[in-house]
Design a protein around this nucleic acid. Structure first.
Length: 531
DNA sequence: GTGCAGGTTGTGCGG
DNA sequence: ACCGCACAACCTGCA
């Protein structure tokens, strides 16, 4: 019997290698309703936020999403369909309403492993099951199904990259067949259907002078960018992530495909296959973890651990996270967030984040280390929130995973290795081109002082039209003192965590609750592991 | 239980 | 430009 199908887009904003779309168009589908629901959780303007955008989403990522939707709509129209953009509150509520109203018999959507997505999808799934609607919900955002990997590993997520790589084999191939036409859209009845809105239509009319992200959203752009990135076979075969230049911004040192993977404008399986084809014809090529394929596997690794770890996005109640007594200094946090730390390398990166919504991986490391275990000793969750909001590629699993990593809270523990906020950038960009671009106030500072402008004689500052303390801030901390202090605190925190040990952890906590003591507070004992 | 190797991406120095 | 090593020393995985 013929029925109506609904294809629910959330991520996976693409036509190529889209199993949900493939399934929706097949079989006895009479009418196909391709739907995207605007989620107020991410899109409701928040005028009190520290920069243009909503509470959870900066303007650049909203724009990226809208461009991706417009591109998707265009592609669907070429296939005889269109994108039905809906609004009206919580996406699960909206979806349940249209499932009823449009007499949907088959619901297709890509599986989502994030907690927010799971809660949302469970509500819809429950309704659909109870209503006898067929559900097809394939895993196609990632190469592997995190649940499968965890099962393979005996029920626990692998906690090192190497063990993860050993565990997984080859990912499934992307769908080879091209979609050439789609069933027509059905009658939407009374329902209000929007075209893909503009920023203005979403209520972001009064954005001041902002330098916008140079990266445009959408599947077409993703495939174009992929093609360009893979043009040089030699570049692909020799790619080594740690050797990239974090200060390169005219032509970034990486592919910048992360935002397209985040929204699913690009299929990770297609990306993987494209790289493999180049490897096949190359004499030699680099390997994980540093290779290009290795980067895709890092994504998988974090998706898997994030899926299998309760409270992955917080320190408390997170089994794999070191309990560290981070400080809570709102003023220092604000300086970091606004690019006002007085360290040009740090501030330029934070400005790039605000303006572009993208920075090189190692630039992210620099500022994350500085905020947490390197200098300010501020909670990684605070930095995570800022990145999550402003990055165009912000991805729940990967962002949290990297903050855990950088703050030495999990995965990585060599807390004495601290990025210098002055010397690290200088290695790559001795004349300070990156700083001059993103911090124009320093554009005439001589290169001898560009990384430490507070050391410039006043005459030099005057000549450069930049008085330190007036036009550009003095450093908010002394890196030498602050980093030494941080190392000491990390050592104490580690000792305390080891003291608690896995088995003792729960018991001690219960006990401390009775005693009204908090073991998460400043540790007193400086001791080695006590078994 | 113990010891050892390895860990995408620190810095500073010498070659 | 690129390597190796010392520095001081963390954790996890495995034998």
């Amino acid at each position: 019997m013929e029925s109506n199908a609904l294809l629910w887009f959330r991520k996976g904003l693409r036509i190529h290698d889209n199993p949900a779309l493939d399934h929706a168009r097949r079989g006895a589908t009479r009418r196909l309703f391709p739907v995207f629901v605007l989620d107020p959780r991410y899109l409701e303007p928040d005028p009190t936020a520290f920069s243009p955008g909503s509470a959870r989403c900066g303007i650049n990522r909203i724009q990226f999403l809208l461009e991706s939707l417009a591109d998707l709509d265009g592609s669907l129209r070429r296939l005889g369909s269109r994108l039905l953009v809906l609004r009206g509150g919580d996406p699960a509520d909206v979806l349940i309403r249209v499932l009823k109203e449009w007499k949907i018999g088959k619901l297709c959507y890509e599986a989502d492993t994030e907690p927010y997505g799971q809660a949302r999808d469970n509500r819809v799934r429950e309704f659909a099951s109870a209503s006898g609607i067929e559900i097809f919900s394939p895993v196609s955002h990632t190469l592997f199904d995190p649940a499968d990997v965890i099962q393979k590993n005996g029920g626990k997520p692998p906690l090192t990259y190497q063990s993860f790589v050993k565990l997984v084999g080859q990912p499934p191939s992307p769908i080879a067949q091209r979609v050439t036409s789609l069933p027509p859209v059905g009658d939407v009845g009374e329902y209000e259907i929007l075209g893909v809105p503009t920023l203005q239509e979403l209520g972001y009319g009064d954005i001041g002078q902002v330098e916008f992200s140079p990266f445009r959203g959408g599947e077409s752009e993703a495939l174009k960018r992929l093609k360009e990135s893979l043009t040089s076979k030699e570049w692909v075969a020799n790619f080594e992530k740690p050797k990239g230049d974090p200060s390169a911004f005219i032509k970034p040192a990486t592919t910048v495909l992360s935002p397209y993977l985040k929204f699913g404008c690009l299929s990770s399986r297609y990306f993987y296959q494209s790289i493999q084809e180049i490897y096949k014809n190359a004499k030699r090529h680099t390997s994980p973890p540093v290779s290009l394929v290795g980067q895709l596997l890092w994504r998988e690794f974090f998706y898997t651990v994030a899926f299998g770890t309760p409270n992955f996005d917080q320190m408390r109640e997170n089994k794999i996270c070191k309990q560290i007594p981070w400080s809570n200094d709102e003023k220092l946090l604000a300086s970091w967030r606004e690019g006002q730390t007085g360290f040009p390398w740090i501030d330029a990166i934070m400005v790039q984040l605000q303006k572009w919504g993208w920075m090189h991986h190692l630039a992210r490391h620099s500022v994350a280390c500085f905020l947490t275990r390197g200098d300010l000793f501020i909670h990684w969750e605070k930095g995570r929130d800022v990145f999550e909001r402003l990055l165009i590629d912000s991805d729940w699993a990967i962002n949290n995973g990297n903050w855990l990593w950088l703050s030495c809270s999990s995965f990585f523990y060599q807390y004495h290795r601290i990025y210098s906020p002055t010397k690290f950038g200088k290695k790559y960009d001795p004349t300070g081109k990156f700083i001059r671009h993103f911090l124009p106030v320093l554009k005439d500072m001589p290169k001898e002082y560009i990384y430490e402008p507070w050391t410039a004689p006043l005459s030099v500052q005057k000549k450069a039209n930049c008085i330190i303390g007036k036009d550009y801030p003095r450093p908010i901390v002394s890196h030498d003192t602050a980093s030494k202090e941080c190392k000491k605190k990390m050592g104490e925190a580690y000792a305390f965590n080891n003291l608690l040990g896995d088995a003792n952890w729960k018991r001690l906590r219960e006990k401390s609750e009775k005693d009204k003591l908090d073991p998460g507070r400043r540790p007193r004992l400086k001791q080695k592991r006590l078994g």
